[in-house]
């Protein structure tokens, strides 16, 4: 079995994440898509790590997980704050700032 299957899978997942970020309107879902992107990158890292027999890639995944957790905490807090202000998390309806 070839390694590029893994890379291909992660590329597909990454792209789905990108499409999601660009098309969705709900802030939470956009954020989840960003998490999907991070997750697919983790897959890439693990498969490279497996290919090289090298631990560093997995270490990076570990840190990426930490970052994802931290991002989740802050991101969800921001979403709660904006929901309290606007009663919506629809990014197309939150538009005080333009140009």
């Amino acid at each position: 079995m070839e390694m590029d299957w893994y890379l291909g899978l992660s590329a597909v997942l990454f792209t789905i994440g990108v499409i999601g970020v660009l098309t969705k309107k709900n802030a939470i879902v956009i954020f989840m898509c960003a998490e999907l992107m991070l997750n697919s990158v983790n897959l890439t890292l693990v498969s490279f790590s497996a290919q090289l027999g090298d631990v560093h890639g997995q270490i990076l995944v570990f840190f990426a997980l930490c970052v994802a957790a931290a991002e989740a905490a802050v991101g969800l807090a921001i979403i709660i704050a904006i929901y309290r202000n606007n009663l919506t998390v629809d990014v197309t309806r939150i538009n005080l700032l333009k140009w």
Binding site: A27, F31, A34, V41, T44, G57, G75, I82, N85, L97
Partner: peptide
């Protein structure tokens, strides 16, 4: 405005983080 700025910054930032990390991963590979 402030919270909205935070949300925009956060969402786009998380998006960019994905690209940055992907770049790092590929360079690592």
């Amino acid at each position: 405005k402030s919270v909205e700025a935070a949300l925009k910054y956060f969402l786009l930032g998380a998006f960019a983080t994905g690209f940055l990390l992907y770049g790092i991963a590929l360079l690592y590979g």
